[in-house]
Simulated scan of single mutants.
Amino acid sequence: MVNVGYIRVSSADQNTARQLDGVQLDKVFTEKVSGASTDREQLHAMFDYVREGDTVHVHEISRLARSLIDLNTLVHDLNKKGVTIIFHQERMTFSPDREQDPLQQLMFNMLASFAQFERQIIKHRQVEGIAKAKERGVYMGRKKTIDDSAIIEAMSKDGASFRKVAKELGVSLSTVQRAVKKQGSTI
């Protein structure tokens, strides 16, 4: 039986030190990425690592995911693998070898709903803030890393393709496509 920790914060400048502090762990998976999606490298690595009889420790429900559906799916899938999951902040344990307490399941779903609601509120405030900044002329989006004319020039060379030019210039395929479309060219 292995005690595995899963630690997540949303951005690179946030500190993970408070999560699972004092919990004895054999292996820890840490990432600094949004919990809005379950497409996370360390989450997948943790899921692949754990085996029947292991226990996954998570500081709080919102650290595992920010969606009710994602949380329920992750807990169900871990339990199905024979893995117990403990949420320390909420003092909740979901074990594969016993039927879940209906009250605990209700509390879990309510807390998961609050985590999802909180994420939606954050996104809503972000959109509002960007709109207000644009109105004031403060927010102009990300600065371009390359001028469109450099892309058009590269596309005019013999044998040029969207993919080749994107790779050559170190930009995304969509950046090249957007520049060509804006130019009105059919290169």
Rank of each mutant, 00 (worst) to 15 (best):
R66G: 01
V176A: 00
V165E: 05
L103A: 11
K167C: 00
R91Q: 15
Y49A: 01
A160P: 08
R18G: 08
I152D: 01
G22M: 08
H88W: 13
V4M: 10
T84R: 14
V75T: 02
R66P: 01
Q14R: 09
A65W: 09
L25V: 04
K80I: 00
T175K: 06
Q104E: 15
M155G: 01
A36M: 05
M107G: 00
A17I: 04
E99I: 03
G22F: 12
S62F: 05
L25T: 04
Q19H: 12
R125A: 06
H57D: 10
S10I: 04
E31W: 10
D101A: 03
F162A: 03
R8E: 11
M155K: 05
D26Y: 11
Q104W: 02
A160F: 11
R66V: 06
L25H: 07
S149G: 01
F29K: 02
T93H: 02
R178L: 05
A179D: 08
K134W: 12
T16K: 02
S37L: 06
S95Q: 06
S37I: 03
S156I: 02
H44K: 13
T186V: 03
R8M: 11
S174V: 14
L111K: 08
D147S: 12
R8T: 05
S67W: 09
Q42V: 00
L68R: 06
Q100D: 14
V4N: 07
Q100R: 07
A17W: 09
S34Y: 14
H59G: 04
Q120C: 03
Q24N: 14
Y139H: 15
L111V: 06
S172T: 14
H59V: 00
D39E: 15
H44N: 14
K132Q: 14
H59L: 03
L74S: 00
F47W: 12
F29I: 08
K182V: 11
T55S: 09
E168H: 08
L64C: 06
K157N: 13
S11I: 10
V28W: 11
Q100I: 03
S149I: 09
